[in-house]
Simulated assay, not measured.
Amino acid sequence: MTWGVCALVVVGLVAMVVVPVATAGPLPVITLRDPMNDALAQQVEAAQADLWPYRDAMAEDFEATIPQIEFIGDARAALSGSAAEAESGLYTLLDATTTPSSARVTLALTATRTTGWWNSQSTAAVCFTLVFPQNEATILTEPADCGDGGPTEPPALPGFDDATRAVPLDELDVRLRVTEEDYPVLPCQCASGGDCDCPGG
Rank of each mutant, 00 (worst) to 15 (best):
113 R>K: 11
63 E>N: 12
159 G>L: 09
148 D>P: 02
34 D>S: 07
49 A>C: 01
98 T>Q: 13
10 V>R: 05
199 P>M: 05
175 R>G: 03
166 A>N: 04
127 C>P: 06
69 I>F: 01
64 A>G: 15
1 M>E: 11
121 Q>P: 02
36 M>G: 01
83 A>K: 08
87 E>K: 13
107 L>Y: 08
162 D>K: 13
172 L>H: 05
120 S>G: 14
60 E>P: 00
3 W>C: 08
75 A>P: 04
89 G>I: 05
105 V>W: 02
165 R>Y: 01
142 E>L: 14
61 D>Y: 03
162 D>G: 00
193 G>H: 05
116 G>L: 10
130 L>S: 08
95 D>M: 03
5 V>G: 00
112 T>P: 02
138 T>H: 01
13 L>F: 14
196 C>L: 05
138 T>Q: 15
195 D>S: 04
142 E>W: 05
188 C>E: 10
136 E>R: 12
159 G>F: 06
177 R>L: 13
24 A>H: 04
108 A>S: 13
35 P>S: 03
158 P>G: 07
180 E>L: 13
135 N>H: 13
70 E>P: 01
192 S>Y: 05
157 L>D: 04
142 E>V: 11
199 P>Q: 03
1 M>T: 11
92 T>I: 12
55 R>K: 12
197 D>I: 11
187 P>W: 09
20 P>V: 10
23 T>P: 00
8 L>C: 12
9 V>G: 02
36 M>W: 01
57 A>Q: 15
35 P>K: 02
66 I>N: 06
126 V>P: 01
148 D>Q: 13
121 Q>A: 14
157 L>R: 03
32 L>D: 02
186 L>D: 14
55 R>Y: 11
18 V>E: 09
25 G>C: 09
62 F>S: 11
63 E>R: 15
64 A>W: 05
51 L>P: 04
183 Y>I: 07
